[in-house]
């Protein structure tokens, strides 16, 4: 990326201080959001989200697998993010590994809850096919196509929409006398198991530049940040995860303040996304 000159940096910081950012937004305003579902027909569910110039694609694929011994009544979900070099040349080769890992872990923490599976956004027990023998493994893949800041929010939104679009085929399991053999699984074409994504949280990242924090930073603004807090909030206003990035230390009161702002902003974001999802479903049905 081309570096910023002093003048530009000053301009950005000044603008934020005066609640008028470089592209005309206020501090707590999101860029125009575009959402599409079903972009990857081969996947069970997929979505494409554009936040301004940031573009990400999320896909959900379901495969049959065996549940772990520890949790024989739960399915498995894994989230993996990949940054395509089309987004930025530094993502070439292994350059994207750090960022991808960071994003993947952050998303996992927000969406999947703790180690025991408590507080997960998706009800894992709904993924079970035959207790102890067969369950669905969900593989959620995110791909960053174009990067202009605020990747985490876009990815979380994409995953939420993709999950709403996901249809898991209905399975008929036929048991036979053998207990240790593979159960015969018959897949029917009539789907589905649709997820209830109303409890899937979104992530709102608040970036602190100078003394103010902004929502949905572009990459230029992100280059000026001192620290950033990503808060994952679900529809009921509960906080599902919290990540702080950046070197500068923050006063705890500032953090509380940021969290409440995030809650407030996220409600609007969630309702926006939900209406998008509903609109998409309506189009599907007709």
């Amino acid at each position: 990326m081309v570096g910023l000159s002093e003048g530009e940096k000053h301009f950005i910081r000044g603008g934020i201080a005066q609640d008028l950012r470089a592209d005309g937004r206020t501090k707590l305003q999101f860029r125009p959001v575009t959402v599409e579902t079903g972009v990857i027909p081969q996947a069970n569910g997929s979505a494409r989200v554009r936040l301004g110039a940031t573009e990400v694609i999320a896909s959900v694929k379901a495969e049959l697998g065996k549940p772990t011994v520890l949790h024989p009544d739960k399915g498995k979900v894994s989230i993996y993010v990949d940054c395509s070099p089309t987004a930025a040349p530094i993502f070439e080769g292994r350059g994207s590994e750090d960022l991808s890992a960071e994003l993947s872990v952050a998303l996992q923490r927000c969406l999947l809850g703790g180690k025991s599976g408590a507080g997960a956004a998706i009800d894992l027990s709904s993924l079970i096919v035959l207790e102890g023998k067969a369950c669905w493994d969900l593989y959620i893949d995110g791909l960053v196509v174009s990067s202009d800041g605020n990747l985490l929010d876009a990815l979380a939104a994409a995953i939420k929409v993709a999950l709403s679009d996901t249809g898991i085929p209905k399975v008929n399991v036929s048991l036979n006398a053998e207990t240790d053999g593979e159960p015969e699984v018959d897949v029917s074409d009539e789907e589905f198991l649709q997820f209830d994504t109303s409890s899937v949280p979104v992530i709102v990242t608040l970036t602190k530049v100078g003394k103010h924090y902004i929502v949905d930073a572009t990459s230029e603004e992100e280059s000026q940040m001192s620290s950033a807090v990503s808060v994952s909030v679900n529809r009921r206003g509960q906080i599902c995860g919290l990540t702080k990035r950046g070197g500068a230390g923050l006063d705890p009161t500032v953090i509380f303040d940021m969290i409440s702002v995030a809650k407030h902003v996220s409600q609007r974001f969630i309702s926006l996304l939900d209406s998008e999802i509903a609109a998409a479903e309506a189009v599907m049905d007709e």
Partner: peptide, 15 residues
């Protein structure tokens, strides 16, 4: 001239 080819995990039928 440099080139990199990548496939997304979800691009093929099998992941």
């Amino acid at each position: 001239v440099r080139c990199e080819y990548r496939m997304a995990e979800f691009s093929t039928g099998d992941r």
